[in-house]
């Protein structure tokens, strides 16, 4: 019996190109969201549609790439874990620097919630364009999205501030060479 040969891996762009895509994606969804939010009026409905569809297409491409991205790719969809979030909260409350070093678990939660919110807001927008009864739902989801974004910006700047506060703070006094206390393994 012959063992089936593994399916050939699709060539995936370099990590650098993937990061550039993420930057472009972030710029498109944030710019698009801001413009769509400010042009929700009837008078500027053309602009609202243009900006909304920009976000919808960007999110669709991002989600599709996230589904096919190989392990370890920055494009993989976020996998938020409740346990990791609990641990992160513990670190934050105790002032443990692990809360703001590396890639804190809270960012993965934010990314997942934001991607889901942007998908819901844009899809409900397309639906509301066809069925006007859905306009209120679309409005409510947009407001929810806006609050999530406010939270996202606060978390990103908060973590950035904490990281910088720590680097600006004077280094802890060195442990006396003869002391056995505080020795790390």
């Amino acid at each position: 019996m012959t063992t089936p040969s593994p399916s050939p891996r699709l060539p995936f762009p370099s990590k650098r190109a993937q990061m550039s895509f993420l930057f472009l994606f972030h710029a498109l969804v944030s710019g698009g969201f801001i413009v769509a939010y400010l042009t929700g009026d009837e008078d500027t409905y053309g602009m609202h549609l243009f900006a909304g569809y920009t976000v919808l297409i960007a999110v669709a491409v991002r989600l599709a790439l996230g589904l096919i991205a190989p392990d370890g790719s920055p494009l993989r969809l976020p996998h938020p874990s409740r346990a990791a979030l609990g641990q992160w909260l513990g670190w934050l409350v105790r002032g443990d620097s692990r809360a703001w070093r590396g890639r804190p678990a809270v960012l993965s939660w934010m990314a997942a919630l934001l991607l889901a919110a942007l998908a819901l807001v844009t899809v409900s927008g397309v639906a509301a364009d066809a069925v006007s009864k859905l306009e209120h739902l679309h409005e409510a989801l947009s407001t929810l999205g806006l609050w999530l974004i406010v939270g996202h910006v606060a978390v990103v700047f908060g973590l950035h501030g904490l990281k910088h506060l720590q680097t600006a703070a004077p280094a802890p006094s060195p442990v006396h060479p003869t002391s056995t206390h505080g020795a790390t393994p």
């Binding site: 710029a27 710019g31 413009v35 053309g46 602009m47 243009f50």
Partner: peptide, 14 residues
């Protein structure tokens, strides 16, 4: 930059 570009393109579109 993206906000400005999208706003301009959306404006032209409208």
């Amino acid at each position: 930059v993206a906000t400005l570009l999208i706003a301009s393109a959306a404006f032209a579109w409208q």
